[in-house]
Amino acid sequence: MKTNQTAIAARGLRKSFGSHLVLNGIDLDVTEGTVYALLGPNGSGKTTTVQILSTFLSSDSGEVRIAGHDLLKEPEAVRSAIGVTGQFSAVDNLLTGEENLLLMADLNHLSRQEGRRRAAELLERFDLGDVAGKLPITYSGGMRRRLDLAMSLVGSPRIIFLDEPTTGLDPRSRKTMWEIIRDLLAGGVTIFLTTQYLDEADELADKIGVLDQGKLVAEGTVAELKRLIPGGHIRLEFADFARLETAAHTLGDVSRDDEALALTVPSDGSVRSLRALLDRLDSEAISVEGLSVHIPDLDDVFFALTGQPKNQKVGK
C-alpha cells in the first residue's frame, strides 16, 4: 500500500451487526488533499464505513491505514490525525460555543494561549462570533452544524470525516457548508464525506464511490460516473393520439408511451435545449398538454448501477 500519498486505504472491510451484513468487502483509496464522497441511500453502510475508518467501531475483517498508520495497531496515532463530524451533532449543550471549542483545545493538549487563539479563529471563520457566549440549544440547525465541525477542527486534523454534513439543512446553510468544505480543501486537508445527494457529491468530490447494500457498486470521478448514468429527459404529454403521432414523427429520437399519451425526449435539462424543443413543436403547431423536466439524480444512478430504484431498498 502506498502511504505517502494515500490518506485513507482500506482493503476488504466487512462488518455485520448480528446476522445483518452491513459492509460486504469494501476497498477504498483516498489520495491526500482530495475530497472523496461516499454516495448511497439510507442503510447502504455509509455511516458504518465512517465509524470504522474513524476508530469508533471495529470491523469484522479487513485492513485499514489512515495517514500511514494501521487502524488496529495504532488507533491513537490515527485519532491524532483525524477530525470527525458525525451525522448527529456532538456538542456539549451545557457549555457555550466558545467553551465547547476551548474544551476541544484542552483535549487536544494545546496551551491555554494557543487554545484561545484557535477558538477565536474558528468562531470568526465559521461566523459564530455573535453567539460564542450562548448555549448551543439556542442555535439554529446550521449554526449547530458549524460549531460541530469547528470542534472537529480545533486539533488541526489532516483528514476530516464528515458523515452527511448537509442532511437536514436548509438550502442556504447547505451552500455555506459547501463553501466551508471547499475552504478546508484549499488548506490542504483530505476530506472523506458521505452523502445521499448526487449534486452534493458532484459539487465537492474529486472521486465518488457509490455504495449499495454494503458493496461499492461504482467508483470514479464525477465525469466517469456520469457516463454510467442515463441522461436527463423531458417528458411531454399530449391531449390526443394524433398530436402524439405528429410530435413523435417531428422529434424523431424519442421513446413513446402510447397509453399515457406521453413522449420522453433525451435532454440535458438546460433552458436552451428546452427552448429549442418547444420551438420545434411550435413550428409544427403541435400543442403540448403537459411538460416536465427530469434531471438525473441518485435514483437514476442507482437504477443504472443496480437495476432498482433506491427508494425500494429497505433502510435500517
Binding site: 491524532s80 458525525g86 448527529f88 456532538a90 449543550n93
Partner: peptide, 11 residues
C-alpha cells in the same frame, strides 16, 4: 447527547 461519540474518536 452524543458527545461520547466525539470523545471516542479523539486522541
Amino acid at each position: 447527547e452524543n458527545i461520547i461519540s466525539r470523545f471516542r474518536t479523539m486522541a
